[in-house]
Amino acid sequence: TGEEYIAVGDFTAQQVGDLTFKKGEILLVIEKKPDGWWIAKDAKGNEGLVPRTYLEPYS
């Protein structure tokens, strides 16, 4: 389980392990790392690192 967040901007993977997403996408945050990069999963089940500055809590 995780917390749902909504993307407030588009993000394109910079390196292997990053997750590309579009503004408005709902992501499930699995782990919040202290460096500001969180592990998240998208609706298709893809998992990767995302920058927390692009996310806001979804309710």
Rank of each mutant, 00 (worst) to 15 (best):
T1Q: 15
T1W: 09
T1Y: 13
G2Q: 12
G2I: 14
G2P: 11
E3S: 12
E3M: 15
E3T: 13
E3W: 12
E4A: 12
E4F: 12
E4N: 12
E4Y: 13
E4V: 08
Y5A: 02
Y5W: 14
Y5E: 00
I6L: 10
I6F: 06
I6E: 04
A7N: 00
A7G: 04
A7R: 00
A7E: 00
A7I: 02
V8P: 01
V8C: 05
V8T: 11
V8S: 08
V8L: 10
G9N: 15
G9S: 14
G9L: 11
D10R: 03
D10G: 07
D10A: 07
D10V: 03
F11P: 01
F11W: 13
T12M: 11
T12F: 13
T12S: 13
T12I: 12
T12K: 09
A13G: 12
A13H: 04
A13Y: 03
A13V: 03
Q14K: 10
Q14A: 09
Q15H: 13
Q15P: 03
V16S: 09
V16N: 12
V16Q: 08
V16K: 13
V16P: 15
V16H: 10
G17P: 04
G17K: 06
G17C: 05
D18H: 15
D18I: 15
D18T: 15
D18R: 10
D18S: 14
L19A: 01
L19S: 01
L19R: 01
T20E: 09
F21Q: 00
F21M: 06
F21R: 00
F21P: 00
K22W: 08
K22C: 06
K23E: 11
K23V: 12
G24K: 03
G24Q: 03
G24T: 03
E25C: 04
E25Y: 05
I26N: 02
I26G: 02
I26C: 05
I26M: 08
I26A: 03
L27K: 00
L27Q: 00
L27P: 00
L28K: 11
L28T: 14
L28C: 06
L28D: 03
L28N: 10
V29Q: 00
I30Q: 06
I30V: 14
I30R: 06
I30C: 04
I30W: 05
E31H: 11
E31L: 09
K32Y: 07
K32G: 02
K32A: 05
K32R: 09
K33A: 08
K33I: 07
K33C: 05
P34A: 09
P34L: 13
P34K: 12
D35G: 11
D35V: 04
D35P: 02
D35S: 11
G36A: 05
W37C: 04
W37T: 15
W37L: 13
W37S: 09
W37F: 11
W37Q: 10
W38Q: 00
W38D: 02
W38A: 02
W38M: 04
I39W: 15
I39Y: 10
I39Q: 07
I39E: 03
I39L: 15
I39C: 04
A40Y: 01
A40K: 00
K41D: 02
K41C: 05
K41S: 08
K41Y: 07
D42P: 02
D42T: 05
D42K: 05
D42Y: 01
D42R: 02
A43P: 14
A43Y: 07
A43E: 12
A43V: 12
K44F: 14
K44V: 12
K44G: 15
K44Q: 14
G45S: 05
G45N: 09
G45A: 04
G45T: 02
N46R: 08
N46W: 06
N46L: 11
N46S: 10
N46T: 12
N46P: 01
E47N: 10
E47Q: 11
E47I: 15
G48P: 00
G48V: 02
G48D: 00
G48W: 03
G48Y: 02
L49Q: 10
L49C: 05
L49S: 15
V50F: 01
V50N: 00
V50R: 00
V50K: 00
P51C: 06
P51R: 08
P51V: 04
P51M: 08
P51Q: 10
P51H: 12
P51D: 13
R52N: 11
R52P: 12
R52Q: 10
R52T: 11
R52D: 11
T53G: 14
T53D: 15
T53V: 14
T53N: 14
T53Q: 14
Y54G: 05
Y54D: 05
Y54K: 09
Y54H: 15
Y54I: 09
Y54M: 13
L55E: 00
L55I: 10
L55D: 00
L55W: 01
L55F: 05
L55C: 02
E56W: 08
E56G: 06
E56L: 12
E56V: 13
P57L: 15
P57V: 09
P57T: 07
Y58T: 09
Y58R: 15
Y58A: 10
Y58L: 14
S59F: 13
S59T: 15
S59E: 09
S59P: 10
